[in-house]
Design a protein around this nucleic acid. Structure first.
Lengths: 151, 151
DNA sequence: ATGTATGCAAACAATTTGCACGACC
DNA sequence: GGTCGTGCAAATTGTTTGCATACAT
């Protein structure tokens, strides 16, 4: 599984940008997303891109992220210090994200919202159309590290 | 020329700013918060303050909001167009907020998160320390208005 | 008297955009 | 060749901050 088909790059771009045009920069950004450990800001992503392609401008990365979000390839899962947090999310269906507050790793969870409880406590007449659940905590490895450190 | 606000005003300031110094501006901002219908941005609040006190600077309003948030008088409940959304929240205990996407009105709900479901679907080893639930929908009056309009 | 709050404007940071140029199809 | 993507820099926007002054205590 280490060998990629010759058109792998084009496939990646097609998936990430929903049929946009292929360019070296778009490929670099899409690959950087693949190398991201979990949630990332545009700044984080810029650093990842420039590890291999130092010439890509930040404006381009912003434009790539917008395109990827529009195509559903990226999902906005929160904020960190005023910057938007993104994550590559290919899971289907309604779910939410866990974010490790220590290392930024992310994971999916099923939606833990109890619809009955929600309906019961919502005020009379209020129609709930959507919800946004963000779960924070420590991933297994950070959790272990904290415990060993005496947290 | 020491003009001292009446006791009710001092009480309001004491509650809102956790013992800070009383000033006309702080009073104006705290009163504007009281007049806010639900969630508001600093811009919204500035408009409310200036309805009655046109001279209050935005920097002061930012500083007042920070102080009120630090004292627990205001709670950050989300964002709107890149600006932070605040709400006056005097409810005790763990709860969440509904926001009407049409008029900005807010309401409390009990926490609808099913802890068992959450524990069951969280990945092995991930320790969830906190969560943030934002509920969006239409309040009773906006809901009625939409229905009447045929939407 | 002393320290705190205010106003102003400049600083800041994240993000967007206008424009000329170059690349992709 | 026409269109779309890119780079650069400037513009936007929400928010913070330095500083001198006014004010509360």
């Amino acid at each position: 599984m280490t060998e990629r088909p010759p058109d792998a790059s084009n496939n990646l771009i097609a998936r990430a940008y929903a049929g946009g045009r292929a360019s070296a920069q778009r490929l670099a950004v899409a690959q950087a997303v693949g190398r991201a450990a979990g949630a990332f800001t545009v700044d984080d992503l810029t650093a990842l891109v420039r590890e291999r392609d130092p010439g890509v401008s930040k404006a381009t990365i912003y434009r790539c992220v917008s395109a990827m979000a529009a195509s559903g390839y990226l999902t906005r899962i929160g904020d960190r210090d005023g910057a938007v947090l993104w994550v590559r999310c290919d899971a289907d269906g309604h779910h939410h994200h866990l974010v490790c507050t220590s290392c930024g790793a992310t994971a999916h969870t099923a939606c833990p919202v109890d619809a009955d409880a929600l309906a019961a406590s919502a005020p009379e007449g209020f129609t709930i159309t959507s919800h946004d659940v963000r779960l924070y905590g420590l991933c297994a490895s950070c959790s272990g590290r904290m415990q060993r450190a005496g947290g």
